[in-house]
């Protein structure tokens, strides 16, 4: 077995595998660092910046930074928690998030983060941007009103033949997620469900499948996001 790397998070002694990123290592040590764009097992993108931590006075994204020997990481401190809340609030005003009418409500990671951070209302003015919905695929609806451009779908989803069915189009504030309608038509129901589950928000929705879980039984109705994290070291 290779030598474990010793480091601390908020003073707690932790251990990591060589080359492991801070976010995955924290999870293994039972420490919650919030994340939206990262999924374990795929190459980190560092795009949402929710996983910001402080190392030697500098802000670094935990998902893209490998753990080093003797690192002292600050995570649960008011400054960083405040920044994270501000990012969550920005994501809410930047899109059109009508949670009461969203199929993902209760299972949505963005909403769950807002609950965990007790966001009552975003401090920023609502943008109400005009975004298009693409319902042309027979299996999936793409609702760009809710897309947070995390690229999880692009980075981690391929169809049964290993082909990408999601891609970005346009640039800057016009950047949008697109679906290959032809390829997506051949997806099995399980694969369509997998695509929906990869999306942290309600931007990829299975057709004819909305609102099938009663309120009170959904993933984040009773327990905050991150409560399932336990040390495996």
């Amino acid at each position: 077995m290779s030598e474990k790397i010793k480091f601390t998070i908020d003073g707690k002694e932790c251990f990591a595998e060589p080359g492991q990123n801070i976010l995955d290592a924290a999870t293994d040590n039972g420490v919650y660092i919030p994340a939206l764009c990262h999924m374990r097992g795929i190459k980190p993108a560092g795009s949402c910046r929710l996983c910001n931590v402080k190392i030697a006075g500098r802000l670094m994204t935990a998902c893209t930074t490998p753990v080093e020997h003797g690192m002292d990481i600050e995570n649960d401190i008011p400054e960083i928690q405040g920044l994270r809340l501000a990012i969550i609030e920005m994501l809410f005003v930047e899109g059109n998030h009508f949670c009461p009418a969203c199929e993902k409500s209760g299972n949505c990671e963005l909403q769950a983060l807002a609950y965990r951070y007790q966001m009552m209302v975003p401090r920023f003015p609502y943008e109400f941007p005009v975004k298009e919905i693409d319902a042309s695929s027979p299996k999936l609806i793409i609702d760009r009103n809710r897309c947070i451009l995390c690229k999880r779908c692009i980075r981690s989803f391929t169809d049964e033949n290993g082909k990408n069915i999601f891609a970005f189009k346009k640039r800057g504030h016009k950047l949008q997620i697109n679906i290959d309608a032809k390829l997506s038509a051949n997806l099995s129901d399980e694969m369509a469900q997998k695509a929906m589950d990869i999306c942290p928000v309600g931007a990829i929705i299975r057709k004819e499948k909305g609102f099938d879980q009663p309120i009170g039984t959904r993933k984040y109705d009773k327990v905050p996001i991150g409560s399932d994290i336990k040390s495996v070291i």
């Binding site: 009418a101 009552m120 109400f128 975004k131």
Partner: peptide, 11 residues
Amino acid sequence: LMGGLPALRNG
């Protein structure tokens, strides 16, 4: 808080 369903017309 945010306009709610009536604000669906905002676009």
